[in-house]
Write a protein that binds this DNA or RNA. Structure first.
Length: 269
DNA sequence: ATCCGGACCTGGTCGC
DNA sequence: TGCGACCAGGTCCGGA
């Protein structure tokens, strides 16, 4: 579900809880991907001051310099009410409202940070694609000497954060670059195209409220579906015709580093 | 240091 | 209708 645009969409949806005080936290199991922190219930009694995002992580800022770190994994989502057997964390607010974390595959992460934003999981993250410090030259340099495909490189959160398997394919299609090209062979001009398309794709997806795949997993916090899926050019379109004007090629699927990649062999070189 | 494959989980879909 | 195989948005970790 959640690449940067989806996590950002969730962040914005969660902002309605800013200013509320947490009454209680209920954990319906001992762990997700990792055990819950032993003192998870210490967020009770605290007011939510703000919500930040770093890469695909949410940082829920609480009083007393306490931060609730959350990652949605593949299938995690936040909602306002109970949904069923995969509701693992239930937060009740003093005003009577509720925040529920649901995650069938349980690849999500919850942890607490006391003071600041330092956490082992955040230590080695690369630059934010929508931040000012990331530019084409920076990208070009971080690809240099990397003996991996450009597709795999875009998924490497040390090179650039926030891009996942869907948007990696979409970005490379729009940049006209083959996903199989080696990162170290990407020219400055190509790096510029990737940089520009990365920003465009991510911003467009955020504006659309994220993506929802065929299984309907992704929901905004208020339950509405993301809209962006209707605009996929290549993702999950194996065997279908390329959408480029004048191109009658069909979209191919290949597996790279164990993940599916979709592209047009004619438009992407 | 770099790269790859396996591991972690549940559930949906497809073919027999 | 049932069952096994395979696939899925992420990322950490161990071994080569």
């Amino acid at each position: 579900m959640p690449e940067l645009p989806e996590v950002e969409t969730v962040r914005r949806g969660l902002l309605i809880h800013v200013g509320k005080r947490i009454l209680s936290v209920e954990l319906n199991r001992p762990d997700l991907r990792f055990p819950f922190p032993e003192d998870m219930d210490s967020i009770a009694g605290h007011k939510i001051l703000g919500i930040d995002r770093r890469a695909k992580y949410l940082l829920i800022r609480l009083e007393n310099d306490l931060t609730w770190l959350a990652h949605l994994g593949m299938t995690g989502r936040f909602g306002h009410s109970l949904e069923g057997k995969h509701d693992h964390v239930v937060v009740d607010f003093v005003d009577g409202s509720r925040l529920v974390y649901t995650d069938p595959r349980r690849f999500g992460i919850k942890d607490l940070i006391r003071g600041g934003s330092n956490h082992p999981l955040l230590d080695h993250l690369g630059p934010e694609p929508l931040g000012d410090e990331w530019n084409a030259q920076y990208l070009h340099e971080s690809l240099r000497a990397r003996n991996i495909s450009i597709k795999t490189a875009l998924l490497d959160q040390k090179i650039i954060v926030g891009i996942g398997n869907i948007y990696a394919s979409e970005i490379l299609f729009r940049a006209g670059i083959s996903p199989r090209r080696l990162a170290k062979n990407i020219s400055k001009k190509q790096a510029t195209a990737i940089h520009d398309e990365t920003r465009t794709v991510l911003l467009t997806a955020i504006e659309a409220g994220g993506s929802t795949l065929r299984d309907g997993q992704f929901r905004q916090v208020d339950g509405t579906l993301g809209y962006f899926p209707h605009e996929f050019a290549v993702y999950d379109r194996e065997g279908e015709e390329c959408i480029s004007l004048g191109c009658s090629n069909w979209i191919q699927r290949v597996v790279q580093s164990g993940r599916s990649t979709f592209y047009c062999g004619s438009c992407q070189r």
